[in-house]
């Protein structure tokens, strides 16, 4: 046999932890803009961050695994209720409440995942709606625990790290939420590039091919759902802590549908897509709803139609394509 010349593929040039650093710095920069330029809107921006966790969570199952779901608010709501109830019953430390939210969200995620990822396509979608509605119905019926339709109120968490009080301008709540977002986002950036995360994207592309390389799909999807539940639980707990109330809206179908819209808007399958979608949708809603409370949904609908036509894979795609082009130009020069 003739000698084989093996040409090595050059390494992809990348700075270690470069992406993570860029992610953290970008979020901090965005946060700083909000904090210093819009000090009166911090309560709104804190709510936005809470929802961002839910959209990121949805991105993990929908964008990265291809699971169709319209019941994802369940994860968020269960986290919110768990943290809220724990607080009302005596746990005051915000970090501990966060842990409660994460734990509850994870359990809810694993249960939902175990049910929903058994199926594919339309049955899966319908089942996700059913799970979401079941949780919403429970939140309503168990009013001795959840406050039912009045909502759960009287959530008064203690100081963050025993130092920072939650103030009426939401400064502490905002900075606390932002800090948690930075940590979770950086962890997720590594997570989606890990062997596990990559395999999930593979499963999304072609699950028969994945099985034909020896992957058992179901346990992986359930596990991913657990991770997504944890992330949504963070958002739920943060929202409960920062607003002091948890209402039925946090587990509602509308919430599930809205976050799906945000994800599609920003670009499913990219963490930045999830963030961008949340920011754009919520700020748009905030401004338009204030200007014209009756027709804001019409405008949102219009915006969506435009985006589906001009950027069907989300707003982040053209931005990423631009970055890639600049990078190629940079390395060619």
């Amino acid at each position: 046999m003739s000698e084989i010349v093996v040409t090595r593929v050059p390494h992809k040039r990348s700075i270690p932890f470069g992406q993570e650093a860029a992610g953290a710095l970008s979020i901090i920069a965005l946060g700083a803009i909000g904090y210093f330029l819009y000090p009166d809107d911090l309560a709104f921006l804190t709510r936005l961050i809470g929802i961002a966790f839910l959209v990121l969570s949805l991105d993990l199952v929908t964008g990265y695994c291809g699971v169709a779901t319209l019941g994802h608010a369940a994860q968020f709501g269960v986290g919110a209720y768990a943290a809220g109830i724990a607080c009302v019953r005596g746990i005051a430390d915000p970090v501990a409440l966060l842990a409660v939210g994460v734990f509850a969200g994870t359990i809810m995620g694993l249960i939902s995942g175990a049910l929903i990822t058994r199926f594919r396509g339309l049955p899966q979608l319908v089942l996700s709606i059913a799970v979401g509605q079941l949780v919403a119905a429970l939140a309503n019926k168990l009013s001795w625990l959840t406050g039912g339709s009045d909502g759960l109120s009287g959530i008064t968490p203690g100081k963050v790290f025993g130092i920072f009080n939650f103030d009426m301008y939401s400064r502490t709540a905002f900075l606390f939420s932002l800090g948690v977002l930075v940590i979770v986002f950086v962890l997720l950036q590594r997570f989606v590039r890990s062997p596990f995360g990559l395999m999930c994207r593979g499963i999304k592309d072609d699950d028969l091919r994945a099985r034909m390389i020896g992957v058992s799909i179901y346990p992986r999807l359930v596990l991913m759902y657990g991770v997504a539940g944890a992330v949504a639980g963070v958002g739920g707990a943060l929202t409960a802590i920062s607003t002091g109330v948890v209402g039925l809206d946090s587990v509602s179908f509308e919430r599930s549908a809205e976050v799906l819209v945000m994800l599609v808007l920003g670009g499913a399958g990219h963490l930045w897509g999830a963030l961008a979608g949340t920011i754009i949708f919520m700020i748009f809603e905030h401004i338009v709803a204030a200007a014209n409370p009756f027709h804001w949904m019409t405008l949102v609908g219009l915006l969506l139609i435009l985006i589906v036509i001009f950027a069907p894979r989300g707003l982040i795609e053209p931005v990423l394509a631009l970055f890639a082009r600049l990078k190629r130009k940079g390395s060619a020069a």
Partner: peptide, 11 residues
């Protein structure tokens, strides 16, 4: 090794 969660896969 596809159950590793925090190492960069391809590299």
């Amino acid at each position: 090794i596809t159950r590793r969660f925090f190492s960069s896969a391809t590299e």
